[in-house]
Amino acid sequence: MSRPLRIGHLYPDAMNIYGDVGNVRTLVQRARWRGIDVEVLAIGPGPAELAEYDLLFMGGGQDRDQSRIFGDFTEHKGSAMEHALEDGVAVLAVCGGYQLLGESYVDADGHELTGLGLLDLRSSAGHDRWIGNVVIEADASLQLQPRTVVGFENHGGRTRLGAGLHPLGRVVVGGGNNGEDGGEGVVRGRLIGTYLHGSLLPKNPHLADWLLATALAHRDAAGLVAALSPLDDSVEMAAHSRALELAMAERGRRAVPLRGRGAPAADGRRGWLPYNPHP
């Protein structure tokens, strides 16, 4: 009898701004519906052994919380994270978590924050914030069926991947990593980084299952990732199709100011949607 599948949720109290808990709930339910025993453990500040987990998840947070968390992450989790990746732990890092895995982040004032340096990617603050529905076509290596992944982005950061890295997918609708090279997120081995937040996995059950299958391979110390038993995903795929339909209808439409008529956005940012650099 194998031990329960172990999911580590990094900083769940602070890094849960966009319904990120939905990703974890989706993984848990899809494991349970298949009779796979699963446990979720919160990983807070301080030193932690991360290779003990089969899957690590980190969401995004409010700026204030995020800066506090970043300090702890770089101080206490760097080598543990590196060890976990070498050990084959599956990772889903969203927004802030995604940026932090890279070499650096340059903020709006030009200050450079050092990341964990686990991935050859660099991020910086952009001039505006991209907010809107996103559709990407996932990297072929993931073998997703269908290949579309739908989500929502809300970020001011721009990320550039080093030459050896593949984006998670090619942007069909939305901004993505930087609006120029057409990539969104990153996939390297069993790690996925992305700007698509909150309800990413519920409407992309194929991607959720990719993560679950890789996590199971880690638990069972299996070199190969075995296929999972199929579930009835008609409700999930109806939502996937609907999101696809709504996003495609926005494709190429002129950007609309969010609060209208010069209204003050809370943080002085310009809110435009939907941004589409590839009409």
Partner: peptide, 13 residues
């Protein structure tokens, strides 16, 4: 819609 919030990820909260 804009007045509701374009992003529905809050349903998970």
């Amino acid at each position: 819609r804009i007045a509701d919030g374009r992003d529905v990820s809050w349903l998970w909260d």
